[in-house]
């Protein structure tokens, strides 16, 4: 029961109170770039959840049994980014060969994710927070879900912006950023929520 409670707290924290995109500024490029339409937003976020979970599952044992065991923690940044880059390529090949439907759904987004700071970010954050394996996995999936929530909400906001009459000097990127600011402001309302529930 305590385990379920702590997992739930981690998920709620990473989805709502510490949303990766809107509160921590990780993964802004895809958030601004791919959020124009709902279906691309969902596809991209599904790929992000998938890669985040996979990256955590692979980097956790590497870190624990290879790096920490040999006192090589300072190599974390290099090792993690290379593992993630290689992993994404591998996943792309495997999906293409064995799971074409899934590849068609997620494949096109995968190369974009290699250099996405959210994936490396979640792996490093699990590290600094000192999470165990199960907690790391939960946190990664939660962060991915948070990314999806932000993307889906924002794609709705952007579809409204399309038809809006925007002052000329704000057209394009500025109004998108200001809209993001308002969405982010609404997420600030969740501050203290998790502590309140699990106090």
């Amino acid at each position: 029961m305590i385990l379920v409670k702590s997992f739930l707290a981690i998920i709620l924290t990473s989805v709502l109170t510490e949303n990766f995109v809107l509160c921590k500024f990780l993964g802004i490029c895809p958030f601004l770039g791919v959020s124009k339409k709902l279906n691309t937003a969902v596809g991209m976020s599904a790929a992000v959840i998938f890669v985040m979970a996979l990256a955590t599952a692979v980097t956790y044992p590497i870190n624990k049994f290879l790096l920490v065991a040999n006192g090589l923690e300072y190599l974390q940044t290099i090792v993690f980014i290379l593992v993630i880059a290689a992993l994404v390529q591998l996943v792309e090949l495997v999906l293409k060969k064995f799971m074409p439907p899934l590849y068609n759904a997620l494949g096109i987004y995968l190369p974009l994710i290699t250099t996405n700071c959210a994936v490396l970010g979640v792996v490093l954050l699990n590290q600094t927070k000192g999470y165990g394996f199960a907690e790391s996995m939960v946190n990664s999936v939660g962060a991915g879900l948070g990314f999806m929530v932000a993307m889906v909400i924002f794609s709705g906001v952007r579809s409204r912006l399309e038809g809006a009459d925007i002052p000329k000097f704000l057209q394009g990127l500025p109004i998108v950023l200001i809209a993001a600011s308002i969405v982010s402001l609404s997420f600030m309302g969740f501050t203290g929520l998790v502590d309140g529930i699990f106090a």
């Binding site: 500024f25 000097f169 394009g172 990127l173 500025p174 109004i175 950023l177 600011s181 308002i182 982010s184």
Partner: peptide, 19 residues
Amino acid sequence: ILAPGGFLTFGLLMACANR
């Protein structure tokens, strides 16, 4: 200082840069 202000400042400065 918080997250929304970051987006807002960036948006407004971007508008100035565009201008």
